[in-house]
Amino acid sequence: MNKSGEIVIIEDDEDDRYLLEDVFNSLECTNNRLYFEDGEAALEYLQHSSSVPFLILSDVNMPRLNGFELRHKLHTDAELQIKCIPYLFFSTAISQEAVIAAYSMSAQGFFVKQGVFEDLRTTIQVILEYWKRCAAPNNF
């Protein structure tokens, strides 16, 4: 696990991207953030980058390649080190089917996208603390 690696954020909503970046700044997060507007752009980056990201935070509903499809592709096609990056889902609308789909893929977390800064800040803070403390996640 590359705990100093970048945090890949896949989010098609510009306002949500700004809010997340404000949260990371307020937490003085030392990991770089890399934002992608859709799953395909993120897939392209992850398959060709030489660095190993620390975390992937992914929206579920996105144009072209949605969050579930992207995670599935990473787990079937990507190098082992990419497969081992914790993949967390964020969504505004959480349907029961979406949650079941996420956990049937052994999700590492499925979070409600909170619109209130303080709530989102606490969630992101707990996420960072959890994966920094984690010794070795393995998806298989």
Binding site: Q108, A135, N138
Partner: peptide
């Protein structure tokens, strides 16, 4: 690491 079978991680 081969035994770290949980996707939710080991601590």
């Amino acid at each position: 690491i081969a035994y770290d079978r949980s996707p939710q991680g080991s601590f």
